[in-house]
Protein backbone atom coordinates (compact mmCIF):
# COMPACT_ATOMS: atom_id res chain seq x y z
CA UNK A 1 0.00 0.00 0.00
CA UNK A 2 2.74 2.43 0.93
CA UNK A 3 4.51 1.68 -2.32
CA UNK A 4 2.09 3.37 -4.66
CA UNK A 5 3.76 5.86 -6.93
CA UNK A 6 1.56 8.69 -5.75
CA UNK A 7 1.30 9.70 -2.12
CA UNK A 8 -1.82 11.73 -2.75
CA UNK A 9 -4.38 11.69 -5.49
CA UNK A 10 -7.52 13.68 -6.09
CA UNK A 11 -9.95 12.40 -8.67
CA UNK A 12 -12.47 14.86 -9.98
CA UNK A 13 -12.91 16.73 -6.71
CA UNK A 14 -15.26 19.67 -6.70
CA UNK A 15 -16.89 22.05 -4.26
CA UNK A 16 -20.03 24.02 -4.86
CA UNK A 17 -21.06 27.04 -2.79
CA UNK A 18 -24.66 27.70 -3.80
CA UNK A 19 -24.53 27.95 -7.58
CA UNK A 20 -20.81 28.67 -7.64
CA UNK A 21 -18.19 25.96 -8.18
CA UNK A 22 -15.12 27.15 -6.26
CA UNK A 23 -13.34 23.93 -7.25
CA UNK A 24 -14.55 22.11 -10.31
CA UNK A 25 -13.54 18.60 -11.31
CA UNK A 26 -9.91 18.83 -10.27
CA UNK A 27 -7.51 15.93 -10.74
CA UNK A 28 -4.26 16.00 -8.85
CA UNK A 29 -1.49 13.43 -8.59
CA UNK A 30 1.27 14.10 -6.13
CA UNK A 31 4.32 11.89 -6.51
CA UNK A 32 5.74 10.40 -3.33
CA UNK A 33 8.58 12.47 -1.94
CA UNK A 34 7.95 15.37 -4.30
CA UNK A 35 7.33 19.01 -3.60
CA UNK A 36 4.26 19.81 -5.63
CA UNK A 37 3.21 23.43 -6.00
CA UNK A 38 -0.35 24.56 -6.49
CA UNK A 39 -0.46 28.01 -7.98
CA UNK A 40 -3.03 30.28 -9.54
CA UNK A 41 -4.51 33.76 -9.26
CA UNK A 42 -6.45 34.95 -6.23
CA UNK A 43 -9.70 33.12 -5.86
CA UNK A 44 -8.61 30.26 -8.12
CA UNK A 45 -9.64 27.71 -5.48
CA UNK A 46 -6.27 26.73 -4.01
CA UNK A 47 -7.26 27.04 -0.38
CA UNK A 48 -10.58 25.38 -1.10
CA UNK A 49 -8.64 22.47 -2.60
CA UNK A 50 -6.68 22.15 0.63
CA UNK A 51 -9.92 22.29 2.57
CA UNK A 52 -11.24 19.42 0.48
CA UNK A 53 -8.08 17.34 0.63
CA UNK A 54 -7.95 17.51 4.43
CA UNK A 55 -11.73 17.21 4.72
CA UNK A 56 -12.09 20.58 6.41
CA UNK A 57 -14.82 20.88 3.78
CA UNK A 58 -16.85 17.98 2.45
CA UNK A 59 -16.28 17.65 -1.32
CA UNK A 60 -19.40 17.94 -3.49
CA UNK A 61 -17.85 15.53 -5.98
CA UNK A 62 -14.84 13.31 -6.38
CA UNK A 63 -12.50 11.10 -4.44
CA UNK A 64 -9.36 11.63 -2.42
CA UNK A 65 -6.78 8.87 -2.23
CA UNK A 66 -4.00 8.98 0.35
CA UNK A 67 -1.40 6.24 0.06
CA UNK A 68 -3.75 4.20 -2.08
CA UNK A 69 -6.53 4.47 0.47
CA UNK A 70 -9.77 6.31 -0.18
CA UNK A 71 -10.09 8.94 2.52
CA UNK A 72 -13.05 10.78 1.00
CA UNK A 73 -15.32 9.82 3.85
CA UNK A 74 -12.96 10.40 6.76
CA UNK A 75 -13.19 13.37 9.10
CA UNK A 76 -10.44 15.99 9.35
CA UNK A 77 -8.97 14.59 12.53
CA UNK A 78 -8.70 11.12 11.01
CA UNK A 79 -7.05 12.49 7.89
CA UNK A 80 -4.43 13.98 10.20
CA UNK A 81 -4.04 10.63 11.94
CA UNK A 82 -3.50 9.00 8.54
CA UNK A 83 -0.53 11.28 8.06
CA UNK A 84 -1.73 14.28 6.05
CA UNK A 85 -1.50 17.58 7.92
CA UNK A 86 -1.94 21.11 6.68
CA UNK A 87 -1.02 24.62 7.65
CA UNK A 88 -3.34 27.55 7.14
CA UNK A 89 -3.15 30.59 4.92
CA UNK A 90 -4.29 32.80 7.76
CA UNK A 91 -1.87 32.26 10.58
CA UNK A 92 -3.34 29.63 12.87
CA UNK A 93 -1.47 29.58 16.15
CA UNK A 94 -2.86 29.22 19.65
CA UNK A 95 -2.42 32.84 20.61
CA UNK A 96 -2.62 32.54 24.39
CA UNK A 97 -0.27 29.57 24.58
CA UNK A 98 3.50 29.83 24.49
CA UNK A 99 5.47 28.70 21.45
CA UNK A 100 6.46 25.57 23.34
CA UNK A 101 2.85 24.84 24.28
CA UNK A 102 1.73 25.34 20.69
CA UNK A 103 4.03 22.58 19.52
CA UNK A 104 3.30 20.43 22.55
CA UNK A 105 -0.42 20.45 21.72
CA UNK A 106 0.43 18.85 18.40
CA UNK A 107 2.77 16.36 20.07
CA UNK A 108 -0.05 15.35 22.40
CA UNK A 109 -2.04 14.27 19.37
CA UNK A 110 -0.21 10.96 19.13
CA UNK A 111 0.89 10.77 22.74
CA UNK A 112 -2.45 9.80 24.20
CA UNK A 113 -2.25 12.19 27.13
CA UNK A 114 -4.81 14.67 25.89
CA UNK A 115 -7.67 13.37 28.00
CA UNK A 116 -5.85 13.40 31.30
CA UNK A 117 -7.56 16.21 33.15
CA UNK A 118 -6.39 14.79 36.45
CA UNK A 119 -2.67 14.73 35.62
CA UNK A 120 -0.37 17.64 36.36
CA UNK A 121 1.07 19.38 33.35
CA UNK A 122 4.50 18.16 34.44
CA UNK A 123 3.42 14.71 33.31
CA UNK A 124 3.95 15.82 29.71
CA UNK A 125 7.20 17.72 30.27
CA UNK A 126 8.80 14.72 28.61
CA UNK A 127 7.45 16.11 25.34
CA UNK A 128 9.32 19.38 25.87
CA UNK A 129 12.59 18.10 24.50
CA UNK A 130 11.02 17.15 21.17
CA UNK A 131 9.10 20.44 21.12
CA UNK A 132 12.31 22.38 21.70
CA UNK A 133 13.95 20.45 18.85
CA UNK A 134 11.17 21.48 16.52
CA UNK A 135 11.32 25.11 17.64
CA UNK A 136 15.04 25.06 17.08
CA UNK A 137 14.55 23.69 13.56
CA UNK A 138 12.38 26.63 12.58
CA UNK A 139 14.60 29.14 14.34
CA UNK A 140 12.36 29.78 17.30
CA UNK A 141 14.56 28.45 20.11
CA UNK A 142 14.60 31.90 21.73
CA UNK A 143 10.84 32.28 21.57
CA UNK A 144 10.14 29.13 23.58
CA UNK A 145 8.30 30.86 26.41
CA UNK A 146 6.75 33.70 24.48
CA UNK A 147 3.04 33.67 23.83
CA UNK A 148 2.22 33.11 20.18
CA UNK A 149 0.31 36.40 20.18
CA UNK A 150 3.55 38.25 20.94
CA UNK A 151 5.47 36.77 18.01
CA UNK A 152 6.10 38.66 14.80
CA UNK A 153 4.13 37.57 11.77
CA UNK A 154 7.03 35.68 10.25
CA UNK A 155 7.68 33.86 13.51
CA UNK A 156 4.03 32.89 13.79
CA UNK A 157 4.29 31.25 10.38
CA UNK A 158 7.44 29.45 11.44
CA UNK A 159 5.71 28.29 14.62
CA UNK A 160 2.89 26.95 12.54
CA UNK A 161 5.29 24.89 10.49
CA UNK A 162 6.89 23.53 13.65
CA UNK A 163 3.43 22.59 14.94
CA UNK A 164 2.60 20.85 11.67
CA UNK A 165 5.92 19.01 11.67
CA UNK A 166 5.26 17.79 15.20
CA UNK A 167 2.81 15.28 13.78
CA UNK A 168 5.51 13.85 11.51
CA UNK A 169 3.15 14.00 8.56
CA UNK A 170 3.82 11.86 5.53
CA UNK A 171 2.07 14.46 3.43
CA UNK A 172 2.27 18.10 4.38
CA UNK A 173 0.06 20.77 2.84
CA UNK A 174 1.39 24.30 3.22
CA UNK A 175 -0.92 27.19 2.33
CA UNK A 176 1.23 30.20 1.45
CA UNK A 177 3.88 29.62 4.12
CA UNK A 178 5.83 32.75 3.15
CA UNK A 179 2.90 35.12 2.68
CA UNK A 180 3.46 38.40 4.48
CA UNK A 181 7.02 37.53 5.41
CA UNK A 182 9.92 39.88 5.01
CA UNK A 183 12.82 38.99 2.73
CA UNK A 184 15.03 37.92 5.59
CA UNK A 185 12.44 35.36 6.73
CA UNK A 186 11.63 33.85 3.33
CA UNK A 187 15.07 32.39 2.72
CA UNK A 188 15.28 30.32 5.93
CA UNK A 189 11.70 29.08 5.59
CA UNK A 190 12.36 27.97 2.03
CA UNK A 191 15.47 26.19 3.25
CA UNK A 192 13.49 24.58 6.05
CA UNK A 193 10.81 23.33 3.67
CA UNK A 194 13.45 21.82 1.46
CA UNK A 195 15.08 20.17 4.46
CA UNK A 196 11.89 18.63 5.83
CA UNK A 197 10.82 17.51 2.37
CA UNK A 198 13.50 14.86 2.35
CA UNK A 199 11.41 12.17 3.90
CA UNK A 200 7.95 13.41 3.08
CA UNK A 201 5.65 14.63 0.36
CA UNK A 202 4.74 18.31 0.27
CA UNK A 203 2.02 20.23 -1.49
CA UNK A 204 2.57 23.95 -1.32
CA UNK A 205 0.38 26.88 -2.32
CA UNK A 206 2.64 29.81 -2.97
CA UNK A 207 2.43 33.18 -4.70
CA UNK A 208 6.13 33.91 -4.47
CA UNK A 209 7.34 32.50 -7.79
CA UNK A 210 11.00 32.45 -6.82
CA UNK A 211 10.08 30.18 -3.92
CA UNK A 212 8.04 28.04 -6.29
CA UNK A 213 10.88 27.80 -8.78
CA UNK A 214 13.49 26.83 -6.18
CA UNK A 215 11.35 24.30 -4.38
CA UNK A 216 8.95 22.57 -6.66
CA UNK A 217 9.41 19.43 -8.69
CA UNK A 218 5.98 19.74 -10.21
CA UNK A 219 3.44 22.53 -10.56
CA UNK A 220 -0.30 22.48 -11.05
CA UNK A 221 -1.91 25.72 -12.14
CA UNK A 222 -5.47 26.38 -11.09
CA UNK A 223 -7.74 28.95 -12.59
CA UNK A 224 -11.38 29.58 -11.76
CA UNK A 225 -11.58 26.30 -9.90
CA UNK A 226 -10.15 24.18 -12.70
CA UNK A 227 -6.76 22.80 -13.62
CA UNK A 228 -5.27 24.98 -16.31
CA UNK A 229 -2.13 22.94 -16.78
CA UNK A 230 0.52 20.89 -15.06
CA UNK A 231 4.26 20.72 -15.62
CA UNK A 232 7.66 21.68 -14.28
CA UNK A 233 8.63 25.28 -13.66
CA UNK A 234 10.09 25.90 -17.11
CA UNK A 235 6.99 24.54 -18.83
CA UNK A 236 4.56 26.40 -16.64
CA UNK A 237 6.31 29.75 -16.63
CA UNK A 238 6.55 29.86 -20.40
CA UNK A 239 2.94 28.86 -21.01
CA UNK A 240 0.87 31.57 -22.61
CA UNK A 241 -2.32 30.55 -20.86
CA UNK A 242 -0.63 30.72 -17.46
CA UNK A 243 0.77 34.15 -18.16
CA UNK A 244 -2.64 35.32 -19.35
CA UNK A 245 -4.34 33.80 -16.30
CA UNK A 246 -1.99 35.59 -13.96
CA UNK A 247 -2.51 38.90 -15.74
CA UNK A 248 -6.24 38.23 -15.71
CA UNK A 249 -6.01 37.52 -11.99
CA UNK A 250 -4.35 40.85 -11.43
CA UNK A 251 -7.13 42.53 -13.36
CA UNK A 252 -9.73 40.81 -11.23
CA UNK A 253 -8.06 41.95 -8.08
CA UNK A 254 -7.89 45.56 -9.24
Amino acid sequence: MADTEYALEARGIGKRFGEFWAVNNVDLKVRRGAIHALIGPNGAGKTTCFNLLTKTLQPSTGKIILDGEDISRLRTSDVAKKGMVRSFQISATFTDLTALQNVRVALQSSHGSAWRFWSPISSIYKLNERAEDLLEQVGLADARDMKAAELSYGKKRALEIATTLALEPKVMLLDEPTAGMGHEDIEPITELIRKVSRDRTIVIVEHNLSVVSTLSDRITVLQAGQVLMEGNYAEVSSDERVIAAYLGGVDDAA
Binding site: T76, A80, F88, T93, V105
Partner: peptide, 12 residues
Protein backbone atom coordinates in the same frame (compact mmCIF):
# COMPACT_ATOMS: atom_id res chain seq x y z
CA UNK B 1 -7.85 29.86 20.59
CA UNK B 2 -8.38 28.01 17.31
CA UNK B 3 -10.70 25.07 17.11
CA UNK B 4 -10.21 24.37 13.39
CA UNK B 5 -6.48 24.13 13.89
CA UNK B 6 -6.88 21.68 16.77
CA UNK B 7 -9.04 19.52 14.55
CA UNK B 8 -6.49 19.62 11.76
CA UNK B 9 -3.93 18.29 14.23
CA UNK B 10 -5.89 15.08 14.70
CA UNK B 11 -8.14 15.87 17.66
CA UNK B 12 -11.92 15.81 17.92
Amino acid sequence: DNEVRVESLGFR
